[in-house]
Write a protein that binds this DNA or RNA. Structure first.
Lengths: 337, 337
DNA sequence: TTGAAAGCGCTACCAA
DNA sequence: TTGGTAGCGCTTTCAA
């Protein structure tokens, strides 16, 4: 059986209040003598305060919920690592919840975190937020920060990258080296990041007076197989496309598989670019030109921000954190001029 | 403010005991009439039982702790996914803890899970188990299953693959096609899987009367940079090595980077094999010959087993589950005969 | 079928 | 500096 605060109190012949003071490091209210005596006993009997009981009283825990969409997507592990490491530094632990791209699961997890009185939530909303989720977020008083997404709810902070700008720059680069017929494989259209990236794509074409051709656009889902499949669709439409922008590296890699299968050489006959700069983008041949997202740093920033809010250390001017993605030019794009 | 069981009881003019019966689906002890009336109220007031208070009484939770070593290693996300999906099916949630290859962190997390009364733990012990950890595992009465590792503690079940056998078969294959000078990049030598794999390597060489040459062996750490680095070391030793067996795909990929840098062609001038069959092993060129581990299935199996133990549904003959890895032959190995 | 009340292990307030 | 104790929200036992 596990030893409780009452056991220790009895053994030491003091009140539970005194033991409580010691285990909570309340500097005053306990004589040095009692303190050391208790500390020894606690050590000896291997007493660990019951976190559940504690949570019931304080309504606080040292747990942060991290809700992401798909841990199998290599973008997320680095982000999770960043969150975990920063949180650990400050004494917090992480519950990692995988929403699996399902709104139902997401709602369940949000409920779960709520019921368990986690100290705060780091939330990666993949889908456009439905009313149900919005309701939960606004109504539960748990501190929350958005990561890799942005939302306009007053008082809610976000950590994200400039997706629109990133695509804008990426496509500008493609245009500057002579590409005009630019294919585009999106993520799921109800995803925040996809929408931003799509906006960037449309905008840069307009700014360069390139007409938008919907035959060049197809909806993906951020997985390798879908990249493979959608590349096939694009190819079958027999456009004059010279490059395909994929909304993440995974799809770019899938697309390259299709290209290889059809014996179309990258980049000589078709250029490909991705987004994320995951490890694989360096491994694939030709090496993938892509956009680097600082996912680890985003994770750390989000954790830092959240814990500051939790501990009321958040300064007035602690606004949302915006990262700038960086163009990573490698070998999968051909210069046309 | 959140509504509690007492609130509902007051509103409905019944005792909290009755409400408790309803929310716990106790079939008897509540009239159909009262039940429906309460259910409506619960719905209306959006009452969610406080999981923390519940946990304090029952000493149970619907949380399973999953302790792994490094979520950034692509082997783990699939495993985590398996655990998560199976657990969810049965109404459990996962706390994912990343031990980060550090014994200290591991001990912390084990403590943490313990204090929080999780229902059970799925534990991937990367390092050989130290006394401290062993002590925790044996002394805390929380159900626990080992995953991707094996330990001989009576009553503790494991889900793992036959690592030794896998390497034995892999190297047998290499020998059968003419390789004799077989390099070996291990994982960290205090890791369980490394030890098993190393045993397999030694055994197969002995069985084939091939002398063991320690110049062909070097210790790695399961990361890409280390694969790169150790390949360099191996090369500098100027052995007659024709193939290098890497204890995971990540190191194999790092090794291939080194080879590319030194202009050594794979597989013509040097063959490489990996272990795990992660996505990247299909992406890298030449495609990597490797050993496939059913990590997703292992995750599911472990979760299933653990929950059975938790719910006392574990049958007598529910022994450990052993998976057989499968050789995946691709293009990174040259036939020498 | 229903209710009263004890108690889970802890914190925090008030009194000594 | 120390102790007594109420109470967190729930489950569970016993009695009505």
């Amino acid at each position: 059986m596990k030893v409780t605060i009452t056991d220790i109190a009895k053994i030491a012949n003091v009140s539970v209040a005194t033991v409580s003071r010691v285990i909570n490091n309340k500097s005053k209210g306990v004589s040095e003598q009692t303190r050391t005596r208790l500390l020894k006993l606690i050590e000896e009997y291997n007493f660990e305060p019951n976190a559940v009981a504690r949570g019931l009283v304080t309504k606080k825990s040292k747990i942060i919920g991290l809700l992401i969409q798909d841990i199998a997507n290599p973008f997320y592990p680095r982000l999770a690592k960043g969150v975990e490491e920063e949180a650990n530094l400050r004494g917090y632990n992480i519950i990692l919840c995988d929403g699996n791209n399902s709104e139902e699961k997401e709602v369940n997890y949000l409920d779960f975190l709520n019921k368990h009185y986690v100290a705060g939530i780091i939330y990666n909303n993949f889908n456009n937020i439905g009313d149900k989720i919005l309701n939960i977020i606004v109504n539960n008083s748990i501190p929350l920060v958005f990561i890799d997404s942005k939302i306009d709810i007053p008082g809610i902070r976000c950590v994200y990258v400039e997706n629109e700008k990133a695509i804008y720059e990426l496509v500008s680069y493609l245009i500057s080296i002579g590409h005009r017929k630019i294919g585009f494989i999106t993520g799921p259209m109800d995803s925040y990041s996809t929408n931003e990236r799509f906006k960037g794509y449309i905008k840069v074409l307009e700014d360069n007076q390139i007409p938008i051709d919907y035959d060049l656009i197809v909806e993906g889902d951020y997985t390798i197989p879908k990249g493979y499949e959608t590349m096939g669709i694009l190819l079958d439409r027999k456009t004059e496309m010279t490059v395909v922008v994929c909304c993440n590296d995974l799809m770019a890699i899938g697309a390259m598989e299709m290209l290889e299968e059809r014996n179309i050489k990258v980049p000589d006959e078709m250029s490909i670019v991705g987004f994320d700069n995951i490890d694989m983008s360096r491994i694939v041949r030709p090496k993938l030109t892509t956009v680097s997202q600082p996912s680890y740093e985003m994770g750390r920033a989000a954790a830092k921000m959240l814990i500051n809010i939790i501990e009321n250390k958040s300064k007035k001017n602690d606004a949302s954190v915006v990262f700038l993605p960086e163009l990573v030019i490698r070998d999968s794009v051909k210069k046309l001029n």
